[in-house]
């Protein structure tokens, strides 16, 4: 089968393997042999009781408590401006010299940070390309923190969810050692299932985003004698700020 994709389309058959038809008909034969009916299945309906019920206040409290338990930090800011000042203070406290921003409007924040001597680079401006590792590594090291507006935050898990888009890079919440996420009131939901349902609806409307990432606390590993270590690949510090009253 020849396909349209990015760049010149490739012929899947060129890479060998079995044809889809052969592969699936073998499965179909085994399933039919076992008495299963091979038609369009209707999926059994899910439980109904756990739709979103919590108030904003309940969600905010649960989100903050859960994230802090995981080793993250969580704050509430009464306005955008307060949130930006809080970011400035958090960065100065950690001696961060440069940040990378992504998703949403950062112009006001930029002014506040630059005034405090912190360099700000926007994801829109960077040409982050693969291949020249030394250059990229040096650049990545310049970014002491990645700042982003979360697409969702999940109260039950303390998770921050990010959808990839031209304005929202995957690397921003991944490469720098510190991640700071701003969360608007409407982005805070009670359950992970709600996020998955939203994204499924979005996918039906205009195609699925190239990635949905749920970030739940700092990067961790227990691969050395079951001893917890933080920040092995992803950010070792995760800060969330609930931006309210805006």
């Amino acid at each position: 089968m020849t396909l349209k994709g990015r760049g010149p389309a490739l012929d899947e058959a060129h890479f060998g393997g079995e044809s889809q038809e052969e592969f699936l008909s073998r499965i179909r034969a085994r399933l039919q042999g076992a008495g299963y009916v091979a038609d369009h299945p209707s999926f059994p309906a899910g439980p109904l009781e756990d739709e979103e019920q919590a108030s904003y206040e309940q969600k905010a409290e649960r989100f903050m408590k859960t994230l802090v338990e995981l080793g993250g930090e969580a704050y509430r800011a009464p306005s955008r401006e307060e949130a930006f000042r809080l970011i400035r203070d958090l960065l100065l406290h950690r001696d961060v010299k440069g940040v990378l921003t992504s998703g949403g409007d950062w112009s006001q924040c930029r002014a506040i940070l630059e005034e405090a001597g912190i360099a700000v680079e926007s994801w829109d401006e960077v040409a982050f390309s693969h291949g020249e590792a030394d250059r990229e590594l040096a650049r990545a090291d310049r970014w002491g923190a990645g700042l982003l507006w979360a697409d969702y935050a999940v109260a039950e898990l303390g998770s921050i969810a990010v959808l990839s888009s031209p304005r929202q890079g995957r690397s921003v919440s991944l490469v720098p050692p510190l991640m700071i996420a701003l969360i608007a009131p409407e982005a805070l939901v009670e359950r992970r299932r709600t996020v998955l349902r939203h994204v499924a609806a979005l996918a039906k409307e205009r195609g699925v985003p190239s990635s949905l990432t749920l970030i739940t606390g700092p990067s961790r590993s227990a691969d050395i004698e079951n001893d917890l270590s933080i920040g092995v690949h992803g950010p070792g510090q995760v800060i969330a700020i609930l931006v309210e009253g805006s």
């Binding site: 990839s164 985003p209 190239s210 990635s211 949905l212 990432t213 970030i215 606390g217």
Partner: peptide
Amino acid sequence: RATSYTTIFSGPR
């Protein structure tokens, strides 16, 4: 409750 990262990716950029 959840691992630190859940990555749900869908094809190329």
